[in-house]
Nucleic acid binder design. Structure first.
Lengths: 131, 131
DNA sequence: TATCTGTGTATACTATGTATGCACAGTATA
DNA sequence: TATACTGTGCATACATAGTATACACAGATA
């Protein structure tokens, strides 16, 4: 499994790895009970230390997105479609809360904030958003 | 001038100070040409090092929100109401861009994202949002 | 001249992120 | 049973960022 890791990112490597795998799980690209690459293998594939992968896996396990068994490996945790959707939303909520909080601090009207969001959605989906 | 600094915040102290002063400028609480507290004074008031305040002021100056003159002090930069509104929006844009980006990665429909934003706005403004 | 102001510079401490390496125990398979 | 995987624990080490302390210097003002 290859994970794009940007060296000059403000996010530490273990966070980028965490985010990438979290994304794969929440989109269904990785299904419950799917095996993850072994820690050593993933470290080798992505040219980072085993420590870094361990850190990422630990965080994923702490959030109940995966579970690990010595001798066996690490696997995507079990949850149904509803739970998955919940988790998706819980991923967006903090960002939106911060945005609303900041908008309110600046006395920006809610309607204006919604406008801005729709404008950015336009840009993203119309022009392709570099995907 | 007192600035709430949370020790256990993921944001470094100089960032919290930067954000707080930036907010005061963009809301108009601090007007163009208003003098800022001296670096030494602000450090003393908030129990942080001079270095930390210098860092915050440097960033504010780099973004043309303030300017500093040796022997005189630091002052809020000059800009009109339109420019101020621009700056406000430029503050929100990165957060919204990240949100839209993440939503798209998760295959969350734009309409659903807008719904979620409006729901959070409701929560914030209805219940007071701990302000 | 005294006392503010910002600025430059040096040193040092702490925490975090990351790397390397070794050891150990659980699991599966030949 | 031997081998080769797996995750885990632990120790050491290094780089960087954030922060603190301290001294010196030059500009501004009363």
């Amino acid at each position: 499994m290859l994970i794009p890791i940007t060296k000059n990112s403000p996010l530490p490597a273990y966070q980028q790895i965490f985010n990438n795998i979290e994304k794969r799980i929440l989109t269904g690209e990785l299904q419950p009970e799917d095996p993850l690459p072994s820690i050593r293998q993933l470290a080798q594939d992505n040219l980072v230390s085993i420590i870094t992968i361990r850190r990422a896996y630990s965080e994923l396990e702490r959030k109940d997105l995966i579970y690990s068994r010595p001798g066996l490996g690490s696997f995507v945790a079990q949850f149904d479609a509803n739970k998955r959707q919940e988790l998706q939303i819980e991923l967006l909520r903090p960002l939106l809360v911060e945005t609303v909080h900041k908008a309110r601090e600046l006395n920006i009207k809610p309607a204006k904030l919604v406008d801005l969001l729709q404008k950015i959605i336009q840009e993203f989906y119309a022009k392709g958003g570099e995907k």
